[in-house]
Amino acid sequence: MRTVVEARQIRKVYGAKGNVFTAIRELDLTVREGEFVGIMGPSGSGKSTLLNLLATIDQPTSGEIEIDGASIMKMSEDRMSAFRREKLGFIFQDFNLLDTLTVKENILLPLALAKTDVKELERSVEEIADKFGIRTILDKYPYQISGGQKQRTAASRAIVTKPTLVLADEPTGSLDSKSATDLLESLRSLNERDRATILMVTHDPFAASYCSRVLFIKDGGMFTELAKSEGPRQPFFKKIMDVLSVLGGSAPDAV
């Protein structure tokens, strides 16, 4: 299977002389096409930094990152923007929907930016809206809909361009459990049916149990890795909880 993300020996240091903080130290990471990978770790372990590096929002101090075969280290600012638009999809904890746009406009924004043909664009939006069950709220503004609906809108926006890699940063972080389950189910079906590659950073072991593989990070380095075997989700959830208790830090209360 094709490799989507290949990170080698990446290192990220913040601060200048005398007062440096190493957020990521010599980390290797490989994600293959069609995987649903979770990244877990206590606060301050470097999860979000890692995601930002992969998202090309931030640059590593040293190391090499390749996404879809292209090295993102040597890209110019403009190419990086184009790359983000074409290859990556983002889902954020606080949704990051544009409150000046309707739900529909929010979803089609990446397509509009890519100057897609209008017919094609409308068709894609409808298809996605059906998939996430938000067809009835397409003409509403973000402030008129619930948190769960907002996150499904954000997820629709992330995958509408059929990106090579979907990056999700605590997508269930501000959702109630019902909405969170709905979103996770949607992501899983996206992964299983549409073979979308998803990388999700989360605090929540319940959310992580939807992944096919979970990486644990501690103090900027890889701690351990769990792969889900065929079968129900419950045992996998249990295993994650076990690792978390060993990992320490801010393991959340049992869900």
Partner: peptide, 13 residues
């Protein structure tokens, strides 16, 4: 915030 989001989803400077 709006423009930051736009930057993240791949709008160039």
């Amino acid at each position: 915030g709006r423009y930051e989001t736009l930057r993240k989803i791949g709008v160039s400077r």
